[in-house]
C-alpha cells in the first residue's frame, strides 16, 4: 500500500472521529480504497469507515492488505498532522508495520513514524449500507452537535421523533426535561444550514446519551450529517467527506420489551 493524502489532517480527522468509540480496528485495503468496521465493547455502537481513492492525492494498493491498529497509538502519531503537510501511508507486502511519512516541502521538513501492526480477530457484522429506512434527515452537523450537547446533560436517554412537522430531540431527566424541534428549512445563503426530511412513516426512538456524545466527535469530518431511522432497528448517523467516503455510526436503540 502506498497512499498519499495531500493534507495530513484529513486522516487525523477520520481517526480522531472514532478513536474514543472503539479501541482497535482492521483497515482493509484494496484497489477500491480503504474500508474498516469496528464495534464497541458493549456491542451497541458500530463504526464504519470508507476512504476511497478519490480522497488521496495518489493511491496504490497492489495486493489486498489488512492493517490492524490500536487507535490510541495511531492517534498519538497523528498529532503531528497539520494542514501544511502531506501524509503518505506505506505498508510493505508482508505487513508488520505501518509507515507514516509527513512531508512539508515548504519548510524542508519531513517526519517519519512507524507503527507496529496488531493482529485483530474481530467478527465483522453484515451491515447493509443501502439499508432502507423509514426516515432520512439531512441537517447541519453543527446544529446536531449543539443539540446533543445541550440535551444529553439532562438525561442518559435521548429520544428522537420525526413527524411531518419536523424532527424533535427530547430528554426526560429526573429533575429537568428538554425538547428541541427543528423544522425543514432552506438557507440560500448557507446551504450547510439546510434541513430536509424524507419519510414514509413517523418514528420515535430512544438511544443512550453516551453514544451520541461519541458520535458527535465525528462532526469535524463534515458540516452535514445524515440520519437514518426505522422503528425498532439501529439508527445510522453518517458524516460524508467532500471527496467521497466518510464515517458512519450504527447505534442500537433502547426500548421497552
Amino acid at each position: 500500500l502506498e497512499a498519499k493524502f495531500d493534507d495530513s489532517t484529513i486522516f487525523k480527522k477520520i481517526i480522531d472521529s472514532f478513536k474514543d468509540s472503539v479501541t482497535q480496528i482492521n483497515f482493509v485495503c484494496s484497489e477500491s480504497g480503504i474500508e474498516a468496521q469496528a464495534i464497541d465493547d458493549s456491542r451497541v455502537l458500530l463504526v464504519t469507515v470508507s476512504i476511497p481513492p478519490s480522497c488521496f492525492e495518489s493511491y496504490r494498493c497492489d495486493r489486498p492488505t489488512t492493517i490492524g491498529v490500536y487507535l490510541a497509538s495511531l492517534a498519538k502519531l497523528l498529532k503531528s498532522a497539520n494542514t501544511n503537510s502531506s501524509l503518505t501511508l506505506y505498508v510493505a507486502d508482508k505487513p508488520d508495520e505501518l509507515l507514516l511519512l509527513f512531508e512539508e516541502p515548504k519548510n524542508q521538513k519531513s517526519m517519519e513514524y512507524k507503527l507496529k501492526l496488531v493482529d485483530i480477530t474481530a467478527d465483522m457484522l453484515e451491515v447493509d449500507s443501502d439499508m432502507k429506512s423509514d426516515v432520512t434527515v439531512e441537517m447541519s452537523s453543527v446544529e446536531f452537535t449543539k443539540t446533543v450537547r445541550d440535551l444529553t446533560q439532562l438525561s442518559d436517554s435521548f429520544t428522537v421523533s420525526v413527524t411531518k412537522d419536523g424532527i424533535v430531540f427530547s430528554v426526560q431527566g429526573d429533575t429537568a426535561q428538554g425538547k428541541v424541534l427543528l423544522q425543514p428549512r432552506e438557507d440560500l445563503a448557507d446551504e450547510s444550514n439546510n434541513l430536509s426530511i424524507s419519510m414514509s412513516k413517523t418514528i420515535d426512538l430512544s438511544f443512550a446519551s453516551k453514544y451520541l456524545l461519541d458520535i458527535i466527535k465525528a462532526a469535524s469530518i463534515s458540516n452535514k450529517i445524515f440520519l437514518k431511522f426505522s422503528d425498532d432497528t439501529p439508527a445510522l448517523f453518517e458524516f460524508k467527506m467532500e471527496k467521497g467516503g466518510g464515517v458512519g455510526f450504527y447505534l442500537a436503540p433502547k426500548y421497552d420489551d
Binding site: V44, M124, A208, K254, D256, D257
Partner: peptide, 14 residues
C-alpha cells in the same frame, strides 16, 4: 426507557 439493545440482535456476523 427500558433496555439497551445490542447490534447482534439486528446484524448477522459475516
Amino acid at each position: 426507557k427500558g433496555n439497551q439493545k445490542r447490534l447482534d440482535g439486528f446484524f448477522k456476523v459475516k
